[in-house]
Design a protein around this nucleic acid. Structure first.
Lengths: 137, 137
DNA sequence: TTATATATTTGTAACGATTACATTATTGTT
DNA sequence: AACAATAATGTAATCGTTACAAATATATAA
């Protein structure tokens, strides 16, 4: 997605494409690393010296409200964000702390005992050791 | 589970059954309400006037380390605990904020793209509107 | 263009949940 | 009873997040 397309994408979701918002969203789609606010802020602060961390908080919260990012709550002490809003799960490696995406079959979950409930969001989180860390330690 | 059995249960998991620890664990198994630290503290403070909130924090953290409680991270601003450590999911109603348990078929998730990873914990969280709130609003 | 209104960004202060730490109390052992 | 080890307590510190007011940027209308 080019800058013009990012701006258009934000507009089409009811978000005015300010410079900071475009840059934050570009960061998310370029680095698919499920960053925290701090990660985004540190990465962009070099190139946008006037950037405020509050702006990153506001921007990501706005993106979440407008449903163009997913909020990842796999750890209790940090909020991560993902610009891939398709249904997928997240795996966090307890050794290297990296977060991986994975696909799963939602319809096969065969959920029991909460029939008649309306589902708005489904989150599947798995923690463990990733393949790379298994081999190297 | 009676008090003696709670003490025995804690011991068998390497936890010294102090008065406070027994009371916190009894609270969890008596009120299966997925409480936060604050909820447990407020409920027990009446009956144990000297109870410190730090003790509740320490106790629940210890229980989690010893794997006799699950840490529920369905919301980013609160940690909830569950003495039911069997594999099950959690549904949070966005209207009444109640957390419900549900069963699901883990083996049918059919997880792709993270083959060869070791899984330690699996969490399935669903947010939406519960049946009761659907009917009453 | 200029004036004006609106929206956004910024930086600081406040907030709240959690943790660190030192002190006190409790428990177990000899 | 004396001692050592463990746990509980209360306060202070920490850290991620939010509130808020001032400054800046953007859009609109005359």
């Amino acid at each position: 997605m080019g800058i013009e397309n990012v701006a258009q994408y934000l507009k089409s979701h009811g978000i005015k494409p300010s410079y900071q918002r475009v840059r934050v969203f570009e960061y998310l789609i370029t680095n698919r690393n499920h960053p925290t606010v701090d990660t985004v802020y540190k990465a962009l602060a070099d190139e946008i010296p006037t950037l405020s961390k509050t702006t990153v908080y506001n921007t990501l919260k706005l993106f979440a409200e407008k449903n163009i990012v997913l909020v990842i709550n796999i750890e209790d002490n940090e909020i991560r964000y993902d610009a891939d809003t398709s249904v997928h799960g997240h795996f966090k490696c307890l050794k290297c702390n990296k977060v991986y995406d994975f696909q799963f079959d939602e319809e096969n979950l065969n959920i029991k005992s909460i029939e008649g409930f309306d589902f708005h969001q489904t989150h599947v989180y798995i923690k463990g050791i990733c393949k790379n860390c298994k081999m190297n330690y």
